[in-house]
Amino acid sequence: MAVVFEKPKSLADVPLHYCPGCPHGIIHRLVAEAIDELGIEGKAIGVAPVGCAVMAYDYFTCDMIEAAHGRAPAIATGIKRCRPENIVFTYQGDGDLASIGMAETVHAAARNENITVIFVNNAIYGMTGGQMAPTSLPGQVTQTSPYGRDVNHCGWPIRVCEMLSTLEGPEFITRVAVNNVKNVNAAKKAIKKAFQNQMEGKGFNLVEVVSACPTNWGMTPQQALQWVESDMLPYYPLGVYKDRTAAKEGK
């Protein structure tokens, strides 16, 4: 019987611990597919965050390290500076990347560190049970913003791509989503490009993946994907925010 669909080699054949309806599985798969297609499984070294993806080291079959909260870009820097021939990526959530690890993120980007950052933005702290994230929307109800995020009290959500794209440093900054098939396909292309760029030595690549958290948003998976479309994407517009090579080539 012909196999028409199988697990990427770079994804371990183990059950994932993610909640039903969580897009982390899709995003893991996209990353693994990109690694497979580029033939870099043997060279890849991944950095797992603290957050829902904390156990990503069990899911990817390449060498993996588990970072302290927010420090993945610094650890990736350490690895990449030692082993420039390897392909180094981080996989981080919004609390990890845009709150406690903001300094590491910004500075890795400013240095144009030749790494690939997969940034999963689901507007909430998932692993700890649904607290307000740096990307939680105005008015969004979370465990720590029970009356809705009040921007006068705790500020505005941070648009990471827009902010990083003001830096001279980074090579490629883009925002994608995984709420429908079309967007998933586009996300796959962006992630692959973010690895390809690193292989070509171009520098810092960040792919923000707008995702969903049905469990902590208190929605069904379907409702959650709809909420991405209706509420998240207007605040976090999809698109390429910086592409140095394309800009140079006048594209």
Binding site: A67, A68, T77, G78, I79, R81, E104
Partner: peptide, 9 residues
């Protein structure tokens, strides 16, 4: 943390 990464490498 850069040290941690390099040491792990």
């Amino acid at each position: 943390n850069m040290v941690y990464g390099a040491a792990a490498a």
